[in-house]
Write a protein that binds this DNA or RNA. Structure first.
Lengths: 351, 351
DNA sequence: TTGAAAGCGCTAACAC
DNA sequence: GTGTTAGCGCTTTCAA
């Protein structure tokens, strides 16, 4: 099964280095010879062993993509786009799932860092310090996390939050809440701050419910706590949480958007089919995945092999500009928002 | 950045082979020495280079998982489970997306085959011949495809189809249709045949609409053709198609389940939130992903390294039994099925 | 228990 | 334009 460069060489009647050249620098080999070699290679179904090649070139032609939860509908389009962009440059992508665990994230990223040419860390949950440390081990691009000195693709969630809050305010709401996601999430912080700022600017009341697990179950648990805030409208960390909220609220007899308006994030498929259909801030996950890989690939290309470059050779240039791209989000209005109803304040049931 | 076995060796004051042993066969090295080596390794943050190791052991500790469409909600749970099962054995997973293209599937699988220890082909769209050929290049496990001599994990979609059709028949339907998916899909054939057989056995009328793209758009296009069949109930290739059908039908003023009952496949999240909520055959994608990797890993372990084994050494044993596992599906009844209404047959609009 | 040496499959100077 | 040689980082006989 294992056909090597040597088999091809002997079949084609040339030296192995000629075979090697035929594949890695075809222009350096005589067209006739090249043809002969290629014929032999095809006949033998030869494909260069990438591990062997990588050992010497220092390139594995592999990328790693580390995400919090593959099964969360937020990620698959991103994974797909990343994979597709990588494939265009003949790169394969290793996908790792951290299960929302910071420890797993750190462990996986570290382990992967050594066996790939670069890693994309999507929505990381570890500390800036650990991320910076990781960046010393490998070429690193972040998605939805800003760390000084590290290239990143950021989604403009704050703009989304301003649009969402603005819409709610325009509708006449004066008591808002933010139903939060995981504390370690950059997106979570961005949304919370933007919503809080918008409320502060207009004198609306603002409260936070959470942190919550970024899942339907998390939303279910948040539902009673959201009601307790007395808010008439809420911005929600993501659609999954909003879906859980919808279930919990319906079970408690609270109508959406009649008594409570909701705007969440992500625009997953189910959001459009929920009852009511969820107004949501669509996230450019495809674009982000593509750009992250693009950035990473550029980083890899730009690096002078594995050898240390002679320091100061070109004079001390300024610190290289770190690519930080921000991609736009979009508020999609559906059926989960309406003007506030007359507020009904009930006494807590158990007191 | 690149710390090698040599760095560790010199720091620990031993030969590189001792360092190697410390990592790959610790019991062969003196506890004291081992400790010294480990200390040095930790201090240097040394991790063995897998590519180099693989070059000699013939193991990459990588698996490839080839799917038709990462963004199709059917696959992510499978990918997640596969990745998680692989991680338990310290394997990484390369995920490739074929975009439903048989050509891409073949190309990707072939390319990946050489750089990993084994590949899982999920819902393949290529011919048996090509798949068998691929199996000669690598260790291969199929999901939802039966090819003689190749290990596979199959979901019992036929049983699901019988349950679905039985339910529809019990409700009183006598004119059924199957809204098909891609022709090259094994699942598609299984469902079609099972539904057809059930109809034949009871004398119900049966027709097929399709093939269709396994997407919402595909369902939208199928909607008018489904109406033309005069069926009062349909089994649908997957939830995505059913969702598209729902849109198309609603636009045409056809009520579900009032005028038309629907049962689809997969049980994606959006199915539960659709209006009406879709009755569907849940697919054990997690389990399948896990089992496929388990099977593959066993296959890899069982192979006597890369060297050819001495033939007939143990006497000619019978051809090794090929693992074929079938995992159960489950019919989930929600709101998209009801007894048939009085049938309204309209004359075709354009004649 | 450890060291020495060969070599996995390939690329990259360098010579011819 | 092609062959020679060295060697990437590691494992694995084989001796000591």
């Amino acid at each position: 099964v294992a056909v090597t460069i040597r088999d091809v060489a002997s079949l084609a009647g040339v030296h192995i280095s000629t075979v090697s050249r035929t594949f890695s620098a075809p222009h350096l080999v005589n067209p006739d010879t090249r043809r002969r070699v290629q014929e032999a290679a095809t006949r033998l179904r030869y494909q260069p062993n990438r591990a062997a090649r990588g050992l010497i070139t220092g390139r594995t032609y592999q990328l790693a993509l580390v995400v919090a939860d593959i099964a969360n509908p937020f990620f698959p389009p991103m994974i797909k786009a990343a994979q597709s962009e990588a494939a265009r440059s003949d790169y394969a992508v290793l996908v790792a799932d951290t299960d929302e665990s910071p420890a797993a994230e750190q462990r996986l990223a570290r382990a992967l860092a050594r066996q790939v040419d670069g890693v994309v860390l999507a929505s990381p949950r570890t500390s800036d310090r650990l991320i910076r440390q990781l960046a010393e081990d490998t070429r690193l691009v972040l998605i939805n996390r800003a760390v000084a000195g590290i290239p990143a693709v950021l989604m403009d969630v704050a703009a989304g939050a301003r649009a969402a809050t603005g819409h709610l305010l325009d509708l006449g709401h004066r008591e808002l809440a933010y139903v939060a996601g995981p504390t370690a999430s950059w997106v979570n912080t961005q949304i919370r701050q933007a919503v809080a700022a918008a409320c502060r600017a207009t004198g609306a009341r603002f409260s936070v419910v959470g942190p919550n697990s970024p899942t339907i179950a998390g939303g279910g648990e948040a539902a009673p706590r959201l009601r307790e805030t007395g808010a008439t409208a809420a911005v929600v960390f993501n659609d999954l949480v909003a879906l859980g909220l919808l279930d919990g609220l319906a079970a408690a007899g609270v109508s959406v958007p009649g008594q409570l308006s909701l705007i969440s994030y992500d625009d997953i498929l189910a959001a459009a089919y929920a009852t009511p259909p969820l107004s949501t801030v669509a996230m450019p996950t495809r674009l982000a995945g593509q750009l992250a890989v693009e950035t990473l690939l550029r980083l890899i290309d730009g690096t002078t092999s594995t050898r240390p470059r002679t320091p100061g050779a070109m004079g001390d240039s300024a610190a290289p500009a770190v690519t930080r791209t921000t991609v736009p989000t979009e508020l999609i209005l559906r059926g989960s928002t309406a003007p506030p109803a007359v507020r009904i304040r009930r006494a807590p049931a158990n007191h």
